[in-house]
Amino acid sequence: MTGSGFDPAVFEDSAIDEETRAINARIDKVFENAPPIDTVPPQVMRDARARGEGVFAARPKTERAVVRDIEGPGGPVGLRIVAPAAPRGVYLHFHGGGWVNGANDQNDPLLLHFADRLGLAVVSVNYRLAPENPYPAAPDDCEAAARWLVANARSEFGTDWLAIGGESAGAHLAAVTLLRMRDRHGYNGFEAANLVFGVFDMALTPSVRNWGPRRLVLNTHSIAWFRDVFAPDPATWASPDVSPIQGDLRGLPPALFTCGTLDPLLDDTLFMHARWMAAGNHAQIELFPGGAHGFSSFGGPLAKRFTARVDRFLEERLG
């Protein structure tokens, strides 16, 4: 399942290990009587996630993090930085949460892992959230953070080696930021893109449309709702700035695409990986049997394999 392809056996039910089945059963139980997502006020949703309620446990915060603001198009953009003493490179990180949820102080174990295991300084971005701040607020903030990093990586961290990545909506924002940096600023110096169970097509891919009501973290209704509050004007959905899969993908960095086979967003990963390669870029894909959306946060064997796979990809690029 490495390199540019994968074994079709990854989609077989027999490929799913028992611990992953148990994790998915617990997720089903959490959402069994949960209210529809569009009936929960966004701030209530955010507060619950910050407390670690639901399927995403609260993660410990590190005292090593440095918090600073940079100038952004809509006001200050917050950065959370975790860095080793002598960074080998810098990883620009965008958190997930459907452009509505999450924050850059909810991923410190990930930031610490990249810093301590790979020697990367990690800069995680607190972009503006929908529905209070719909498109283009979040991409604008992520673009501002990327521009700041390109201009200041050498002076701030002693290195010009840059990678970019994120999870779910964060992977979407990473792809959009790469296109903006190339097209608006003539910059194509990112050395790696780590695109984790991302959403790349606002028209909704077949796996999203055909998923149905089962809310294994996400379902067809919740994905459409997240899309609608982020980009409420359907006229924007075909734009590469909203659906990066629609863009000219030439000249983008080597990318690793990862996704679970029980993620409604599976086709987004499959299709974007294919388009990335068709544009002449290096691309790798890894699919994880039975993985739900967000599986890398739920522990178990899939999460361990995922971490090792991302580490290997970034180590290869650090070279």
Rank of each mutant, 00 (worst) to 15 (best):
S124H: 03
L112R: 09
E156H: 08
R180F: 09
A15S: 03
F114G: 06
P87Y: 09
R182N: 15
M1L: 08
M1T: 01
G186C: 12
S155D: 14
R147E: 12
G75E: 05
D183M: 11
A203M: 15
L112M: 13
E32A: 07
A65R: 08
L204H: 09
L256C: 08
D183N: 13
T307I: 15
I81S: 13
G212E: 09
I285C: 02
L111V: 01
P60D: 06
N107A: 15
A138V: 05
D311E: 03
E63Q: 15
W161G: 01
P41S: 11
L120F: 05
R215M: 10
F313E: 02
P232T: 14
V67N: 15
A308V: 09
G75V: 05
G280N: 14
D263Y: 04
R26S: 14
A57C: 12
S297G: 04
R46H: 13
L252Y: 07
L256I: 00
D28E: 15
A235N: 10
P109S: 04
T2C: 12
A144G: 11
K304R: 14
L218T: 14
A238Y: 12
H185I: 09
A144Q: 05
L270G: 04
A279T: 08
I16A: 11
D116N: 10
D311W: 02
V30C: 03
R64H: 13
H95A: 05
D233C: 11
H282D: 02
F298S: 03
A144S: 12
H95S: 04
A193S: 13
V44L: 12
G5S: 15
L204N: 00
L218V: 08
A130W: 05
G166K: 10
H185V: 15
A57Q: 12
H95V: 04
R275D: 06
D228I: 08
A138T: 03
D248W: 00
T177Q: 07
E18S: 15
P134Q: 14
L179A: 08
Y91M: 15
F298T: 09
T20I: 01
T39Y: 03
A151S: 11
G290W: 01
K61F: 12
A57L: 14
L129T: 07
D108Y: 01
E167W: 07
F190A: 05
E132T: 14
G102K: 01
P253S: 00
A86E: 07
N126V: 03
N101A: 12
G3L: 09
L179F: 04
V310P: 01
Q106Y: 02
G290A: 06
V82R: 01
N101E: 13
R305Y: 05
N152I: 11
K29Y: 14
P253L: 01
L218P: 06
R305G: 00
S239E: 06
H273I: 10
I223H: 03
F230K: 02
H113N: 07
R180A: 12
L178R: 06
G186A: 11
G300L: 00
G75N: 06
I245G: 03
P109A: 11
R80L: 08
L178E: 13
L162Y: 08
M202P: 00
D201A: 12
R312M: 10
E18F: 11
I37E: 07
W148D: 14
Y91Q: 10
W276V: 07
H95E: 00
L318T: 02
L302I: 11
P87A: 08
L129S: 04
A153T: 11
A145H: 02
